[in-house]
């Protein structure tokens, strides 16, 4: 006869067939926790705990019967329950409702109150090609002025020395308007443009956004500049977001100062 009890060490070995402890299933009220052990790609033993919420549903007989069908084809070997190779739970994605406040804000820099077109001929609210004065004396005049300015700019550069574009005459026109810009600092490293957009679009439409990033790692350096479309929105951002807690940090928001 076999001895009824073996040494405790043997017992443990017998359980671990392939060097892995057996999987366990714990049912705790409406929750089921399944613990499995397996080897990962590097050959290391890992423990996988999966928790499920058990839901009870009343279904028609046909549906209930179909739940008991045995698996076939490529799923023949699968255990009951979803196989993690074929069934994955994806990240939650929220519906983006059009017409909601967020959506409108996100899109109104395209069709805002300010007309985008400016006519070079008559300074009207349309593109130059559609100008009613096109080809008239006014058009020719404006072209002459443009030519004259171009010539004047050319004159200053006659010395032959290279002048960087931002120092050239006429470069002033290109200078951006910083009056609606705010500086947001004390941002966390994990901040992304999307997060920042999420944060500021609630306040109002913005035209430009710059998130400072570390060159090598690509992580956020902790500050960002946002150019709002309207000065009142920028003022509101300074008012509201300054001292606002975000990602466990207290943001500091101030008006953007000129660089020098």
């Amino acid at each position: 006869m076999k001895p009824a009890t073996t040494s405790w060490a043997d017992e443990v070995n017998a359980d671990y067939v392939d060097g892995l402890p057996p999987s366990k299933e714990i049912i705790d009220g409406d929750y089921k926790h399944i613990t499995q052990y397996k080897f990962n790609d590097e050959g290391k033993k890992i423990k996988v705990v999966r928790s499920f919420k058990v839901e009870r549903k009343i279904v028609s007989r046909a549906v209930a019967k179909r739940r008991t069908w045995t698996k076939f084809g490529d799923s023949r070997q699968d255990m009951p329950g979803p196989n993690s190779y074929t069934t994955k739970v994806a990240d939650d994605i929220l519906m983006n409702y059009i017409g909601s406040k967020d959506f409108e804000h996100a899109h109104d820099h395209l069709d805002g109150n300010k007309p985008m077109a400016k006519c070079r001929i008559c300074n009207g609210d349309h593109w130059s090609v559609k100008c009613p004065y096109k080809g008239t004396s006014m058009d020719i005049e404006s072209k002459a002025i443009a030519a004259a300015t171009a010539a004047a700019v050319g004159d200053t550069n006659k010395s032959g020395k290279y002048v960087p574009p931002f120092l050239k005459d006429g470069a002033k026109g290109r200078e951006r308007d910083d009056s609606c810009a705010v500086r947001i600092s004390n941002l966390s490293e994990s901040m992304t443009e999307d997060d920042l957009e999420e944060l500021v679009k609630k306040i109002g439409p913005f035209t430009k956004m710059y998130l400072a990033r570390e060159k090598t790692s690509g992580l956020c350096k902790g500050f960002a500049y946002v150019h709002f479309k309207y000065r009142k929105d920028a003022a509101e951002a300074v008012e509201v977001l300054n001292g606002h807690g975000y990602d466990h940090l207290i943001l500091s928001v101030e008006w953007s100062k000129p660089q020098n």
Binding site: F72, D74, T87, V89
Partner: peptide, 10 residues
């Protein structure tokens, strides 16, 4: 309901 694969038709 739970995304479990019942089978494939080979």
């Amino acid at each position: 309901l739970n995304g479990e694969r019942l089978g494939t038709y080979d």
